[in-house]
Design a protein around this nucleic acid. Structure first.
Lengths: 153, 153
DNA sequence: CATGAATAGTTGTGGTCACAACTGAATCTA
DNA sequence: TAGATTCAGTTGTGACCACAACTATTCATG
């Protein structure tokens, strides 16, 4: 069977997609840079701030961030040094370490959050429009569902 | 003025988007891994194979790949060592170096391309459906246009 | 022309991340 | 309960990439 190549409209859709992503990512990073944090840092702060007691087990946080265990260890090293996060032991399971948001870290997030939300609006939500946002959400739900289905197979 | 926070549907749309991207990227990488190349390598091969004489100036290639000059230098180092690409001087401007696709590199791309196209179909085009592909293409065109507009301002 | 600015590319350095190997702790099993 | 297995996290190592600094070449301006 010959390869089922992409037709022109599929081609442009695909290239539109992958070429836009790096630029979009760069825009978000640039808007957070004045706060001295990266998107990666910001996502850690968000997850921890939403978690009970502002803390998460390393493995759960790594899964939430789609980061490898070692990747999270190293990222947290930097955030601990910056004073935004502390490590704390778990009394019931001595294997686990909690990543715990400090008041400094919370303040950092509170300072950065408005700018980041603004950034998401400017570069993502506003250009898409309300209908576009709903469409995009639905489309990515389809992709996500498909990825999960393949993964479990 | 208080911050204009995201409402629930905006929130889910945004998270849907950013959490799916790493998984999608990982799926494409995994499908190319058996060929011993990464998405980055593959994109180099694609651009060079489509270029006149199968060669491009380093700076043009870097721009096409949205890579820094040094990033392209290092990526090409690996591909030259693998024998897929050669560097060649330009006779009319001695500053420029061409990245030139070798026959080995072309063969590598021809071998990988069907699997990659298949991968794009499976993880991206098929889940979206024909209508979804057109919608997504249009939505990313909006985002791209907006980014470009802001950049020139 | 002559010189200063712009351009093309590489190298030094440092940040981020994954994989493999490892420690220590909990759990399962016989 | 002894021993094997699984699990949580860190460390060693190497890949990839960006920024800054540098060389070499070309262009632009007087």
């Amino acid at each position: 069977m010959p390869t089922n190549w992409l037709d022109d409209s599929e081609q442009t859709a695909w290239r539109n997609f992958i070429t836009t992503l790096p630029d979009l990512s760069a825009a978000f990073e640039a808007d957070l840079a004045p706060h001295g944090i990266t998107m990666g840092d910001y996502e850690v702060l968000v997850f921890l701030s939403e978690a009970p007691d502002q803390r998460m087990r390393m493995c759960d946080l790594a899964a939430a961030l789609r980061l490898s265990p070692s990747g999270l260890t190293r990222r947290l090293d930097g955030m601990v040094k910056a004073g935004w996060v502390e490590r704390s032991a778990c009394s019931s399971d001595r294997r686990v370490m909690y990543a715990h948001l400090t008041s400094t870290g919370l303040a950092k997030m509170d300072a950065a959050a408005p700018d980041h939300v603004d950034s998401v609006r400017r570069h993502f939500l506003t250009p898409l429009g309300d209908d576009g946002v709903q469409q995009l959400s639905a489309l990515f739900t389809l992709i996500r569902a498909h990825l999960h289905k393949l993964q479990s197979a």
